[in-house]
Structure formats: structure tokens, C-alpha cells
Amino acid sequence: MIKIKVLFFANFRELLDCSSLSVDLKEDANIRDLCDLIKDKGDSWSSLFSNVQSDLNSDPITSLNNKIKIAVNQEMTTLEYSLKNGDEVAFFPPVTGG
């Protein structure tokens, strides 16, 4: 088993009423597996994570098609990323600073 820290920001944090979470996953799990696991935590979780898709052909940061942004250890990534013990995964909406 591997242990992952999961963070949620902005409206995702509010929707889920959760800013961080610790999750145990099987070895060689990827982010898609993480989404499959946490979507069963409740209605708001399934509404956010059931249809999570990652357009591998587009820039993971700037594609607006991709409404859920994913970072691992503070670098943008995609659903296919293979997780390691101790990874910090963050889910957030497209950024709106400046």
C-alpha cells in the first residue's frame, strides 16, 4: 500500500467541504485510480470526480476543456501519473489570479 496526501482548492474545497485528505492506495495506482476511489465518498465527490477526464493532447495547465487541474508534488500532471508513497496530489479549478 502507498499513502497519498490529497489537497483541494477554491470551489472544489468548498464543494467537498474538505481541504485535505490522506488516502491509502494499492502500489502502482495512478491518479485515475485515486479519483475512482474518492468519488464514492458522497454526492458532491461523485459529481466532481465521476467525469474527470484528462486531455493528454493538450497542455495540462492551459486547456479550458480540462476543468479539473491536477498537480503532483506541486507540478502539473495528468490522470495517468503513477503515484508513489508520500506524493502530494492537488485538485483545483482553472486559475484566476492577477
Binding site: F9, A10, L64, F92, P93, V95, T96
Partner: peptide, 24 residues
Amino acid sequence: NKATFWKKEHYLLNESKQERWIES
């Protein structure tokens, strides 16, 4: 487009408080 900041606006409309996250 890239820096991880998010803005939320707070409004007072017809004496009712409202808020919304800005969309990109």
C-alpha cells in the same frame, strides 16, 4: 493562466449577501 491563485467575489445585492468564484 498558470499561477495557482483563485479569486472569489463577495456581493451585496438587494440586501442579500452573495458570492461567486471567478471563472477563467
